[in-house]
Structure formats: structure tokens, C-alpha cells
């Protein structure tokens, strides 16, 4: 989707910046300097303001990373079910090819360790399941 379309879709809402950034991130995989400039102009904000918002939130990236990504939950309830050992295993299997990220809690705290790939959730993971997930990416 083009940036103007994204902006047009949200500009009438109260507090449109986050919805715009979400759509830009989803469409491009990151929020570029040009996007920041154009959004700032459209919303009548300074580039520094928009830039500050982008950098504040973990969900927004400022540089592209074309690799497929998996996010493992590393919060307490998953730690209690073995997420730390599993994370080390995931890093080994992923190597440079797949990005292994961290998420703190997916709300599945009874069936961990858990992971998220895109919007898809995976529960009750063990080493075999993680290897298979990463292998298929």
C-alpha cells in the first residue's frame, strides 16, 4: 500500500500516528526515513517527533531485515517452563538465516514455551518443534 493511502485512511481518526506507523511497518517491514518525513508533513508534526515515536516502540524497525523472523517468549511463566534453554537451541538452529527475537508474554502462559511467527502462535514447544518451525521458514 502507498503511504498516501495509509495516511488518508487514518488521518481523520483521533491520534492517527500509531495506526499509520503500524500499517507502514506491515507494508514495508520497516519505517524508512522518507516515510517519517512524509508522515510528519501530513500530520503537521516535526520529523523529530515522528522519529521519536518510531524509536520508542519495540514493534517499529528503522532498517529493513528481509530475514524470516520468529519471536520466542522469554517472560517468567515461559522461563518456568524452560524457555531459556529453548532460546539457546533456537539461536543455534537459526544461525544467520532466521532472526530469533524476544517477546515478553503472549498470554499463553500455561502452555509454554511459546513463540510467534507473524500473527501465528505456537505453543508447547520443545527442541524438535522449534527446529521444525525454523527449518520451515
Amino acid at each position: 500500500m502507498e503511504l498516501d493511502e495509509i495516511v488518508a485512511r487514518h488521518i481523520g481518526r483521533e491520534g492517527p500516528l500509531l495506526p499509520i506507523l503500524h500499517d507502514v511497518q506491515a507494508a514495508a517491514g520497516f519505517v524508512s526515513e522518507e516515510a517519517i518525513r512524509d508522515i510528519a508533513q501530513a500530520l503537521n508534526l516535526s520529523r523529530a517527533e515522528v522519529s521519536g515515536v518510531v524509536s520508542f516502540y519495540h514493534d517499529f524497525r528503522r532498517t529493513p531485515d528481509p530475514r524470516p523472523a520468529i519471536r520466542l517468549c522469554r517472560a517468567e511463566a515461559c522461563q518456568a517452563r524452560g524457555s531459556e534453554a529453548l532460546a539457546a537451541h533456537a539461536e543455534r538452529v537459526a544461525g544467520e538465516r532466521v532472526r530469533v527475537g524476544t517477546v515478553y508474554c503472549l498470554g499463553l502462559c500455561t502452555v509454554g514455551p511459546n513463540a510467534m511467527v507473524g500473527d501465528e502462535l505456537h505453543a508447547r514447544l520443545d527442541e524438535g518443534a522449534v527446529s521444525a518451525l525454523i527449518g520451515a521458514m
Binding site: A75, E76, A77, Y104, C105, G107, L108, C109, T110
Partner: peptide, 8 residues
Amino acid sequence: DEGDSGTF
């Protein structure tokens, strides 16, 4: 926002 680990 339910960010607390262990809550769902």
C-alpha cells in the same frame, strides 16, 4: 495492554 507475564 495485559503485559504481565502469567496473565491471560
